[in-house]
Amino acid sequence: MSGRETVLGKVRRALAVSGAEAERKAAVDERLANPVAGLIPERGQLEGAARVDLFCKMAEAVQAGVTRVASSDDVPEAIAKFLRQNNLPAEIRLGADDRLAGLPWEKTPNLTRKSGPSDGRDLTGVSHALGGVAETGTLVLHSGSDNPTTLNFLPDTHIVVVAADDIAGDYETVWQRIRTIFGKGVMPRTVNWVTGPSRSADIEQTLLLGAHGPRALQIIVIGGTA
């Protein structure tokens, strides 16, 4: 007997079921076919500018930096300014995301852009998030050539661009969007929720930033001001 049959057989014997019970199957099929959101905390259930403000506040509370710009045209200069202020080289690596490619980079001629996944030597990576979650200041990113997953983890500094309109109150709303974009029951290879920069408290329970992932996370929020 295969490991599969053995394990499933033991589960069924313990539960005193055969696996063929119509009622149990129907309960499972229904739950998987029509996922229902559970209890969602009130905290993130805000509209418009208030929701974006909460997102920024929660992100800053977990040591992310937040830059707010009025339009996507302002993003290149915001990136250049952030790098300057933090004494970082004017060089970024980014994927093939159309929203990033279409930005007016000519405004920042001194900023060098490299394309593709990170090889582990980049100091700054730039990604465009699929969305954000106001409840906890969480960014939602997904894998693909647009925004390679390695950019989320290897560079010392991670700059993430997110449109205010894509900031939801809760995680459940973002899952619904992912279902709309990719199809029901289909997930991108990787979905990353990112809430602040990398950290560890493994030495004497003292919180330190920059364990293995980025030491700094800078979020650029486009729009959303009242």
Binding site: S143, R189, T190, N192, T195
Partner: peptide, 20 residues
């Protein structure tokens, strides 16, 4: 409130994926 990285992985590298 939330752990820094919650990562949802589904299958291997897809066609066109530059990493994974």
């Amino acid at each position: 409130d939330m752990t820094v990285y919650n990562t949802f992985s589904t299958g291997p590298r897809r066609p066109g994926d530059p990493d994974g």
